[in-house]
């Protein structure tokens, strides 16, 4: 029998080691979009426009990175958009309330950031506990909390808008609008989150466990993986990232209302799926998610820059591109 072993020894081929074409589908779509944008408008590749697109992608982007882990482990979170609005509301109210005692300055802004991360953590923990301990379907849990967060922020705002004190806002504003070496802060933070996310997914136990649980949670359970804790952690991580996104979002317009973060959850989920993560879980690709987010932002940007179609049809173009991006991967992977 041992001689058979030798002859059957694994012989990895070079082709097998390269990432398949299907994996590069979203990247290809992104490159095509950039090329399209560049031919349609000469300002497309200007530093200003690129900064705009990247910076506005940052919020959804950070959230989508967190969403990648939730979806990879077989979960879903529909509440992130409302959660962002709620966190923004609480953060602004908190900062306004602390203003008389703390005055405008770094401590106040840090306190605001602390509030945002704290509320995000608690919100994520709430979702996670309902999913893992109460064993309710994530879809239902987060559909519920989506409504709860949304109505809470509307209530906090009295149906209107919660605005950050003008003086504080002036001080806090640079967190969105300025940056380091000409790169805006939201872009820097998003890049850090994305790189850390990619490493966590590929090179840590947490990422590996997320994939295992999403692939088959029974196998994970039988393999001594603390399934509940990992699931809980994905929701907490997502909550924290929503908090982080909110920290970058609030200085942009300095306000929160019932319409803040509307449909962010769907954009984040769409970005994750476009990026090649399986909606049913089991396989996650953080860099793909980043590309997905960029694709979504770019479509919007190009449609406005280019005057290609009636604005009524923007949604159609977006929908077609989203479906195409996914079909592109699917088609290639099944033939491979």
């Amino acid at each position: 029998m041992s001689d058979l072993t030798r002859s059957d020894a694994p012989r990895p081929s070079v082709a097998a080691r390269l990432p398949g074409l299907s994996a590069l589908g979203p990247l290809l779509a992104l490159i095509l979009l950039v090329a399209l944008g560049a031919t349609l408008n000469e300002n497309f590749l200007s530093a200003g426009n690129i900064t705009n697109v990247l910076a506005r992608s940052a919020f959804i982007g950070m959230i989508a990175v967190g969403m990648t882990f939730v979806i990879t482990s077989g979960g879903l979170d529909l509440s992130v958009g409302s959660m962002a609005a709620f966190i923004a509301g609480v953060m602004i109210l908190g900062m306004n309330a602390l203003l008389p005692s703390m005055g405008v300055g770094l401590p106040l802004v840090l306190a605001g950031m602390g509030i945002a991360l704290g509320v995000g953590l608690l919100a994520g923990l709430g979702n996670g506990l309902l999913v893992t301990k109460a064993r309710i379907e994530p879809f239902i849990v987060t559909l519920g909390t989506m409504g709860i967060f949304r109505s809470l922020v509307t209530w906090l705002a009295d149906g209107g808008t919660i605005s950050l004190d003008f003086g504080v806002r002036q001080f806090y504003r640079p967190v969105y609008y300025s940056g380091l070496f000409g790169i805006a802060w939201p872009i820097i933070v998003f890049a850090i989150v994305a790189v850390a996310g990619q490493i966590a997914m590929r090179h840590t136990r947490f990422g590996r466990y997320c994939e295992a649980i999403g692939s088959n949670d029974k196998v994970a359970l039988y393999s001594a993986v603390n399934v509940e804790r990992i699931r809980l952690m994905t929701y907490v991580l997502l909550g924290l990232l929503v908090g982080l996104a909110t920290i970058m979002y609030v200085p942009r317009l300095g306000s929160a209302s019932g319409s803040t973060g509307m449909l962010w959850e769907l954009e984040a989920i769409a970005a994750v799926i476009i990026g090649g993560t399986a909606l049913k879980g089991g396989y996650g690709r953080v860099w793909g998610t980043v590309i997905g987010v960029l694709i979504l932002s770019l479509i919007d940007n190009i449609l406005i820059l280019a005057d290609l179609v009636s604005p009524y049809l923007n949604g159609t173009i977006q929908g077609v591109i989203i479906v195409l991006a996914v079909v592109l991967q699917r088609g290639k992977s099944s033939s491979a």
Binding site: T154, D158, G159, G160, T161, S257, G258
Partner: peptide
């Protein structure tokens, strides 16, 4: 109250 105007109207 999904946006500012409706928020005002609700109020």
């Amino acid at each position: 109250a999904t946006h500012g105007f409706m928020g005002g109207l609700n109020w």
